[in-house]
Design a protein around this nucleic acid. Sequence first.
RNA 1: GGUGAGGUGGCAGAGCGGUCAUGCGUGGGCCUGCAGAGCCUAUACAAGGGGGUUCGACUCCCUCCCUCACCUCCA
Length: 469
Amino acid sequence: MKIAKLEIFDTLSESEKELDTSKKIRIYLCGVTVYDEAHIGHARTIIVFDVLRKFLESKENMVEFIQNFTDVDDKIIDRAQKEGATAYDISVRYIEEYFRDFDALNVKRATRYPKATEHIKDMIALIDSLVQKKIAYVSKNGVYFAVSRFSDYGKLSKKKIDDLISGSRVDVDETKNDPLDFALWKFSEESPLWDSPWGKGRPGWHIECSAMSIKYLGENFEIHGGGRDLIFPHHENEIAQSESFTSKPFAKIWMHVGMVTINGEKMSKSLGNIRTVKYVLQKYGPNIIRLFCLSGHYSKPIDYSEDLLKENIVKWRQVETCYYELLLAEGKNQSNPIGETVLQCSTEFDSALSNDFNTSLALTAFFKLVKEINRLAADELLSKSIAEKAFPELERMISVLGLAIPKITSDEINSINQLIKKRESLRQQKKYQEADNIREQISKMGIELIDHKNRTAWMKKEKIQSDIS
RNA sequence: GGUGAGGUGGCAGAGCGGUCAUGCGUGGGCCUGCAGAGCCUAUACAAGGGGGUUCGACUCCCUCCCUCACCUCCA
């Protein structure tokens, strides 16, 4: 079933804009510069877009999702020099690390991950066109985009050129015609470098996204996204380059994700307050991180704290319980006390996400269903037939949110069932100590028993290091 | 200084011109051999300050205060 109407707040027009879902939805997300470990700030942006994409796909939309790797950059070169490695070595290493982290976070791989270094020709072609149009000029240190030649400059970040100049902290560079002009191509004699019609060197940062998004998604695609901190100058410059090149509006919707803060301050390497994805993954696992990252509206900042992460452990346990209660439900029950709730929660879930992608409200709907199922389960009102109604919808929400229930094998199931039987008979004989020993034994397999009045259910618990219980 | 986003109960966090979600936490009770899960119930002056509009504002307008982000690289 397709979504009736999906609206996303567009930074450029400062209003909610309807996403055209009549055909393939093209999304370009500015990815990471691969010079170091990814942190939770990166993770939030990428998880938000991952859920957006999964939501769209769950609604039968075709999505083409492109996320770049910036693999040529001053930071990469610095890092390489420090380590006596090549820039290439560094970027290859951190791309590998990237996939290790984000596969573990259950992020679906993008349609493709273009790299800057593999698109030098496309960038040169774009720059060349701008030079021909006299929108870019060749100077002593490189090729620059002349901001004065693009009258809409500042439209995305709502900045006025005069304000930018007066408040500017940019180093005065006499070789530029205007302090605001930015580099499209930087001359250099040191590796990594490529030939260009203007001289050896490497591309500026912004041009890669213009070149690659246009190449893979066309000149006017649906959504261009990234962290809020990219609005200026990165996305502003992309607009200037791209629209000067194509003479068409660039992305239809600009979607920006709020920063992850820590003690109220932006998480960033330069402030030295980052928590790497690896660190948090090890302590909390992917599901807790995802619930945390989706707990507030994507456009607002979210403050990292271990207390909040821990709060999500409780919630995650409820999801696991719910999943297994449905999985193991048995027996017949004519009445269906849950059909309405399922439909209602499902509708609320979709409408929350359709209304500027409100994951916070969507989670409320999701947990409403989870709690209702758990309540029925506790009262032994779940039956196979009810489970069959609720399960697909629950699984759909779980998969849209990108959560992953720990898998269980049929061998495990068999041995668990046997142990439960044994424990049951011991309990009937009131041999509680022995029964508890078996519960302990099962618990070591990562299984928690849930005693109901007439039968014992169980669930497989994800191992979470920071879970005190 | 400029631009933008915010300030909601112990914490997190939505929506909304009128009945102020929801979750976590906390108190009491129930269920259980115990534990977990679950249930019932209670809990909070909730809205940064001050004006205004309105029959009525947390929600609209003005003003002041505060926080954060961007203006250099940044998701």
